[in-house]
């Protein structure tokens, strides 16, 4: 029993990080119908930004977290401005290639600056809580807590603020949004900033939980989060969360049952099966027919 509870907590921690990244994919897909494959690298930059800030001056987590989010949010918006906006009306495959290219550029710049894996300093005095045979570390609570808080915040922004309304409207009809006097480009920039900020936060939390960071850390996790977003229904915020937690749980279950080499095999086979039955993802909707 406590064994299962412990594994559930493990799955929850992993899923929370996937979720934060998956949200970035979903947000951007929502407004531009494009996959920002450089998003995994923004996640990586989140970890490195935190490391850099801590190297300049040791600051507590509650300061470094918002600073990292702002930095990566800004970089996300900058990426859109410099790389994606000029080709917005180009064929979709150009956008995919551009984002893959941007990802590689970001990775290789980081590799050039920091060729070796880096180790994160400990920002938190780690303590563990034991009850009924379950061990939860403060870090796990932090990772899950911060992730959930950020996700609730995002949900609030999307559902109840004028920015959120504009983002949702933009995902329905970009031209119409401009005709109503809303500068679509600014909303798109803000969307990239929001997604980037979440990815940056995920990178920071990941680096705290698993304190070895490298320029290539965003690739696999980025892909996994992307898969989670697709499974949940890309473009759907809640779908991204659901997909991420399903992926986290599947991974933990497959590792506990089979050797670790089977983990991704099992996890992704299962997810592909979901797609066979729900081609638009669990919470995704088929594109609306134009009248």
């Amino acid at each position: 029993m406590d064994y299962i509870a412990q594994q559930v907590i493990n799955a929850f921690q992993l899923g929370s990080i996937y979720a934060l990244i998956a949200l970035g994919y979903s947000l951007v897909y929502g407004v531009l119908s494009m996959i920002n494959f450089a998003h995994g690298d923004l996640f990586m930059l989140g970890a490195f930004t935190c490391l850099l800030l801590e190297a300049i001056v040791p600051i507590p987590l509650w300061i470094v977290l918002p600073l990292t989010m702002i930095t990566i949010g800004f970089l996300g918006a900058l990426l859109e401005r410099l790389a994606y906006r000029p080709i917005r009306n180009a064929p979709r495959v150009s956008a995919i290639i551009t984002s893959l290219g941007c990802g590689l550029i970001i990775e290789n710049i980081t590799l050039a600056i920091s060729p070796y894996p880096r180790h994160m300093p400990t920002l938190l005095q780690n303590s563990t809580i034991h009850f009924y045979g379950i061990t939860i570390s403060f870090l796990q609570i932090l990772v899950v807590g911060v992730s959930l808080t950020l996700m609730l915040l995002l949900d609030f922004i999307i559902r109840f603020t004028s920015l959120g309304m504009a983002i949702r409207a933009l995902s329905c009809d970009r031209v119409m949004v401009s005709l109503l006097g809303i500068p679509a480009n600014r909303i798109i920039s803000l969307t990239f900033a929001l997604g980037g900020a979440l990815g940056g936060a995920a990178g920071l939390l990941y680096a705290l939980a698993y304190p070895v960071i490298s320029s290539s850390m965003g690739i696999l996790i980025g892909w996994k989060a992307f898969v989670a977003a697709v499974i949940g229904g890309i473009g759907s915020i809640r779908g991204a969360l659901l997909g991420a937690y399903i992926l986290g749980t599947t991974e933990v279950i497959s590792v506990t049952i089979l050797p670790s080499t089977y983990r991704d095999l099992i996890a992704y086979s299962l997810l592909l099966i979901i797609l066979v039955f729900k081609p638009y993802g669990i919470l995704g909707e088929p594109p609306l027919q134009k009248v």
């Binding site: 594994q7 939980a209 698993y210 991974e251 506990t256 670790s260 983990r263």
Partner: peptide, 16 residues
Amino acid sequence: ETYTTGDRDFSAQLTK
């Protein structure tokens, strides 16, 4: 228990 190169999360295996 086993893991794969590049893994950073070992909690599932360690729990076992």
